[in-house]
Design a binder for these strands. Structure first.
Lengths: 239, 239
DNA sequence: AGTCATCTTCATGCATGCAAGACGGACAAT
DNA sequence: ATTGTCCGTCTTGCATGCATGAAGATGACT
């Protein structure tokens, strides 16, 4: 019954995954032929996949000049965070009113895991569970369009968040903020859930400005994109 | 200096426009060859345009079965309105803090036009100016990503809003709500601007439920899509 | 040496060709 | 009359070919 997926869709997912996971860094050139060979197809499905990713903001296609992974400058990242804050805030608001008992149990379970992993201290492991935590809330909104939209923005930002949690004390702070959100959610207080979530994601507080000043703009190994020239003035970071 | 636009981009814009303007109704089949002939190209750029539109949620491509204009059921429309409310709300919030004097003047001018046209009484003419009103606020947010995102959601909803203003008294109510928003914006009150805008768009109040019950789900002239079967139980509406 | 013009090379944008799968109709069986 | 099967037709998905325009290299000139 699994509906057959076309090559172009597979490629689009694979490429998006590469971008989100940081395997394809912003600014990286995406050569059609190279990709075609790598995936064992012709250029046609590759092109279609790139067009889809371009339509979603993951890559930029400059006519006759090929596709590159989108490189966001600081300003654009901040802009997306502003959007992210209200979208996640809305998720929380709706979730507070709509989550089923099973979903609430899920939330508590995942939150518990978060707390455990936070104490364990590995930011990368925590990062994964943190993602699941937020996903549970997206789903709890019972709004599919919102879920997809929020995930899309999150994915677009993901190349820039990887190191966010490596700041000293950020994990502890994150899990504490989660705790507050969870409480509001379980008490069914939409206003508080929304505002706490907005603060958790958003510009308020010092989290983001710290983030900005510590931000290591991911750069491509090859051919830094013009769009990124001078964003942070930092040379190529190989990480 | 106008950077050359590829055919696939032109096609994508043209098709999106057809959909938003209601010339291509939800459920309508988009045949590659027909479109290719209509626009005087081969199928390739048409396919690429369709892929882009699919990635943005305007059309649905079912493998081996072709593309159709997405048909949203009532639930999905409501979901998008929930998103729309927070996005426009955020636009208003940011605009309250960031609009330049020139932009404020613009806003007042457009609002004035809205009032004039509202009094004149033609909902369709008002609709156009209403769109401009909201666009001014998007721009006033000084957040490009948000601007684009909000416009995209608005466009996705546009086939379903056309008749919204034809309800008795809706125009008057709309312009009154605009007036409140404008006041908050000009006073630089972000909280009030956001909450008023959310209410203007959103589910609160009776506007939307009226809208729902009066909603004439746009249907394709040919081949009603399976996704729409039973959404409102109404037979094909030719309008 | 540095700057500018020309040329070469190559990737992209689009057209076309071909095979596989889906829809529709005819026909047979119940 | 209805259901199920088979077959023809058509559209899509992908591969390939070709022309255009861009990036880089070479060389001339200031």
């Amino acid at each position: 019954m699994a509906l057959p997926e076309t090559r172009s869709e597979q490629l689009a997912r694979a490429l998006e995954d590469d971008i989100c996971a940081g395997r394809a860094l912003p600014g990286m050139r995406l050569d059609e032929q190279v990709l075609a060979q790598r995936f064992g197809t012709s250029r046609t499905p590759v092109r279609e996949a790139l067009k889809m990713l371009a339509a979603q903001g993951f890559v930029e296609i400059r006519p006759r000049q090929g596709a590159v992974v989108v490189g966001l400058d600081v300003r654009q990242v901040l802009e997306l965070f502003e959007i992210m804050a209200v979208l996640e805030g809305l998720c929380a608001r709706l979730a507070a009113r709509r989550m089923t008992p099973a979903e609430r149990a899920d939330l508590m379970a995942v939150h518990g895991e978060c707390q455990r992993l936070a104490a364990a201290g590995d930011p990368d492991v925590y990062y994964a569970m943190n993602t699941r935590f937020h996903e549970v809330i997206y789903a709890g909104s019972h709004n599919r369009q919102l879920e997809e939209e929020t995930r899309r923005v999150r994915n677009r930002l993901s190349p820039y968040r990887r190191n966010q949690l490596h700041q000293l004390g950020r994990v502890a702070k994150s899990v504490q903020e989660h705790d507050d959100v969870v409480r509001a959610l379980l008490e069914g207080d939409p206003d508080r859930a929304e505002s706490l979530m907005r603060r958790h994601i958003g510009i308020q507080g010092d989290g983001l400005s710290d983030f900005v000043s510590n931000m290591s703009t991911p750069q491509a190994v090859s051919s830094p994109p013009p769009a990124l020239a001078g964003t942070l003035g930092r040379p190529t970071i190989v990480r």
